[in-house]
Computed example of a mutant assay.
Amino acid sequence: MIDLVSDWVWGWALSRGTPDPVTEPDGYRIDVGLPAHRVRYVLLDPSSAGPRAGGLTEPGTWLKVCGSAEQVPLSPRWTVEAPEYLMSTGLGPIAATTPPDPYTVELHSTGDVHDAVVRAADGECAAKGRVAVRGRAAVIDVVETDPAHRRRGLGSVVMAELSRAAADRGAVRAVLVATEAGRALYEKLGWKVESPITAAHLAV
């Protein structure tokens, strides 16, 4: 679990272009630097959430805790988000994926970050996602399908393209944090839930 969380933290920071994560006694800190997301703490043990949260006061501070909301002691100052899930899968050789007509898929790479975009016939983005590769681990991030193009298998196309890009660059495992809706798709694709994640923030 510790290795998977480390993979996710470092890959997420790479994907989002933040400074490198800082190791803390209870997990990690990422200085995101956005007004509504100033800093993020990722905690491995739900019992550490209360002590950590008690010392945090600045709006735009986020917590991501390995554990369910019932396990995470937080005061009413914190806004708790919908449940999320840390998930993982192994990676191996993956054949190129052909999207259904009339869609096309593109891959754009900048260093170790790779973006897959599925385009509709008119060239508009129908679905997209990103993977950041760090060593032998990959983090899949910001996967979404435009509402007008859902239920056509495009999310699976994006995931296959990102997984193929990561495997081609030497990654042997992948991790992500999924919403409840995303979890269903990823489980169908062979991903496994490793831990519930509780997300909470101090409102701006």
Rank of each mutant, 00 (worst) to 15 (best):
76 P>V: 06
14 L>W: 02
189 L>Y: 02
76 P>G: 06
23 T>D: 13
119 R>E: 01
60 G>S: 09
34 L>F: 15
172 V>M: 07
59 P>D: 05
30 I>R: 15
49 A>N: 11
19 P>H: 14
149 H>T: 02
115 D>R: 15
94 I>V: 15
203 A>V: 13
160 A>G: 12
71 Q>C: 07
174 A>W: 04
98 T>F: 05
18 T>Q: 11
47 S>E: 15
44 L>V: 09
182 G>M: 09
184 A>D: 07
155 G>P: 04
161 E>K: 11
79 T>L: 15
30 I>G: 10
80 V>E: 11
199 A>R: 14
143 V>Q: 03
61 T>L: 09
14 L>S: 14
41 Y>G: 07
160 A>F: 00
28 Y>T: 04
183 R>E: 04
167 A>W: 02
115 D>G: 04
5 V>M: 13
74 L>Y: 11
24 E>R: 15
200 A>I: 08
75 S>T: 15
128 K>L: 03
135 G>I: 02
92 G>S: 12
142 V>W: 12
92 G>L: 08
6 S>P: 03
121 A>R: 08
161 E>I: 01
160 A>T: 12
72 V>L: 11
29 R>E: 14
164 R>Y: 05
128 K>Y: 01
66 C>Q: 14
192 K>N: 04
182 G>C: 09
141 D>T: 12
12 W>S: 11
79 T>V: 14
2 I>A: 14
53 A>M: 12
118 V>W: 02
166 A>M: 01
107 L>W: 04
183 R>T: 02
188 K>I: 00
101 D>C: 07
34 L>N: 10
173 R>M: 03
56 L>K: 11
46 P>F: 12
30 I>M: 15
182 G>H: 06
139 V>L: 08
71 Q>A: 15
204 V>Y: 13
94 I>D: 06
188 K>P: 00
32 V>E: 12
157 V>Y: 01
105 V>C: 08
27 G>T: 09
179 T>H: 06
157 V>F: 01
145 T>K: 05
25 P>S: 05
65 V>L: 10
15 S>N: 15
90 G>M: 08
3 D>L: 05
92 G>W: 03
132 A>N: 00
168 D>G: 11
114 H>S: 12
42 V>I: 14
1 M>H: 11
201 H>R: 15
22 V>P: 02
11 G>D: 08
100 P>F: 06
66 C>D: 06
82 A>G: 08
22 V>H: 11
51 P>R: 09
73 P>L: 10
153 G>E: 08
165 A>I: 01
185 L>C: 04
82 A>M: 14
